[in-house]
Design a protein around this nucleic acid. Structure first.
Lengths: 110, 110
DNA sequence: TCCATATATCATGAATAATTGATATATTAT
DNA sequence: ATAATATATCAATTATTCATGATATATGGA
């Protein structure tokens, strides 16, 4: 993970349609969602959604997989992990006690 | 935390100078750093750095505090927590097992 | 008070990115 | 083979964002 990949990932998340799409895919987890179902659910035009999913894909935040005529998209948790790891690199050096609240929040109720 | 605040935070992180500045502040932890020292270290012009720090500030990712003639900036770990929480909301509903690697990465070596 | 230091703001031109209509590609069914 | 469905790509317009030079504000020292 380098600075270019990381800024491109954050740029991908800096726009409402894409952030919501990724949140939907994060909620969908391993089930993923079909591209068309995402655009229907979000009431976004087909080509706009396609372009935005493409940005998320190239940023390494989602994966996809053809399924008949449709294409199913999934959140890429591994890519997300890499981005956050780059951001938080060496955070503990300065102030270990600051990390815990962050961890707790991400941890949710697993 | 809402969608507007979150996209603005990610937009703030989508640019090299700002992402590196925040990474430096995350490493500095509770010590923070003076604005001028950040721009010197990064070899960025004073006004460019000021504008970029201002973006991070309004995005809720850093705090600042006057210190004589200088201004000291700190990473805002609470703001960061909120952004990540919004992104990961309900992630566990879909696929609990995906959360752990993310958590581990953020956790670093505290 | 006057000057130096530290940072912020303003205006502008250059580069990037976003949405859209139109069209292309890929898959499946008849 | 033709048509229908699902998604992607293209071209063009509009909108945002960035770095910069110039200048303003705030603090501390002489």
């Amino acid at each position: 993970m380098d600075i270019k990949q990381t800024t491109s990932a954050f740029a991908a998340l800096s726009q409402t349609t894409r952030l919501e799409a990724l949140r939907i895919l994060i909620k969908s987890g391993a089930d993923g969602m079909l591209a068309g179902d995402i655009s229907d659910m979000m009431e976004v035009r087909q080509n706009t959604m396609s372009a935005n999913l493409s940005v998320l894909l190239h940023a390494g935040l989602v994966r996809n997989e053809r399924e008949g005529r449709s294409i199913r998209y999934y959140a890429d948790f591994e890519g997300l992990r890499g981005v956050l790891a780059f951001l938080m690199e060496d955070c503990c050096g300065g102030s270990p006690e600051k990390c815990q609240p962050l961890i707790n929040e991400i941890a949710c109720a697993c």
